[in-house]
Design a protein around this nucleic acid. Sequence first.
DNA 1: TAGTGGTCTAGACCACCCC
DNA 2: GGGTGGTCTAGACCACTAG
Lengths: 246, 246
Amino acid sequence: MGTTQLETVPEPKYWHLKTVLSEALDSEFAIGEILPNERELAARFGVARATLRQALEQLELEGRLQRRRGVGTTVAPPRMGVAVGDRAHSWEDADDAAWQPVDSTEAEPPAAVARLLDVPPGTLVHTVRRTRVSHGQPIAAELLYVPSDSVAVPAIDTPPGAPRARAVLRELRRVALEGREQSVELGSARADDAKQLDRLPGAPVLVVTTRYTAAGHTVAVAVATYRADTCRLTFGDGPAVELLAS
Amino acid sequence: MGTTQLETVPEPKYWHLKTVLSEALDSEFAIGEILPNERELAARFGVARATLRQALEQLELEGRLQRRRGVGTTVAPPRMGVAVGDRAHSWEDADDAAWQPVDSTEAEPPAAVARLLDVPPGTLVHTVRRTRVSHGQPIAAELLYVPSDSVAVPAIDTPPGAPRARAVLRELRRVALEGREQSVELGSARADDAKQLDRLPGAPVLVVTTRYTAAGHTVAVAVATYRADTCRLTFGDGPAVELLAS
DNA sequence: TAGTGGTCTAGACCACCCC
DNA sequence: GGGTGGTCTAGACCACTAG
């Protein structure tokens, strides 16, 4: 019992490196400032570049750094709070500049979405693509799935692209909604989402799945992909949570 | 699982590898089944082990795989839905087996939490540590910060450990709460949280920060760290969302 | 064109788990 | 002890950006 054996577990180098870098970011760098390049940092700390990169990846995952190929590594600003749960329904604000409709097609939804929509696999549904922008930055890409019997107009004679997307949303606004369920999970950006989000494929994202219900059945399902590096999703009764976790 | 030769495509090898593995997981493996080890998989696909690992890391991030040192890589079950927003207040269910109190101390909270609590930096607050368990697995580690003026009993003569934690929660239950704000962001597990969650330090986690308010001021702040690989956080008016995004 | 981060290789050793 | 995943090295080349 008296043997105060300190664990002789050598902390991984990249972990220690991450701590050192994190403290340096707090004390010696300003937001937006560019760091020395990876080869120089690795040499400065006496580690291989791959090890240095492991530390940088962690810091990027935590939203402390931003890395862009061909440019460099910069100190990221604090994550922005993004409300995903406090407005009644995200398509009700017609003038809201947050969501920009991109286009709309009729397509077969993924199997998981078909189950949520409670339609047979293979059913064609309106598929509206939207982008959410905040502070001039794309922060989310969304696919909104709307079964054809939820909206009156098939939008077949509406010009494709944004106009057709707006037409579906306009029809959707006429539906009296009664409830909503949401879930959040970690994912990695598909190629198309990554392009919209200005990230590389595989970048970590927060996937928000929303099911909208009315009159006891599912009206629409939205799958929104938020940049995990720059976004903090806020829910709640009141105004957005203002501050970060430690 | 096929041993198809990888073509020279503009797509990164690890990305293509991830796709191939993902399809193999769907069609050729059962949940819980153990995969061939990394060296053999790498040889089978004709890539370096590091490249294979990049693909496995992505699949683990998406909750498709589970890797344990000394054991192997197994096919993960679908993520479990975890309700974090539908019960009024998570300490009101005295008999709820979900949250297990661990201990409680009086300590100085992190600066960000002090701001949320609206107390001067350096103030001592009750700090209750709890673990959330589901299906026999630890899924979350939480630190609950309660300013001393929120609860009557300083719990100074209560035995340390779980009894003291329970005492603070008991007092907290007497407070009439009026609101709550929550935020979700991506983080990486600190060493202590990682130990509680049975993961390695740095593992990806979903950090849920909750601010509880009553009579116009903040009563408590909870910072809960959920395993991002196994959990899908659910919010909403109704029952938990049942299905996953594609 | 020069410089950045992104990908990839072929090794090595270590920490951990189970037999 | 034998096998697993985790860490680390010292290179190489590629994709992208900017001056």
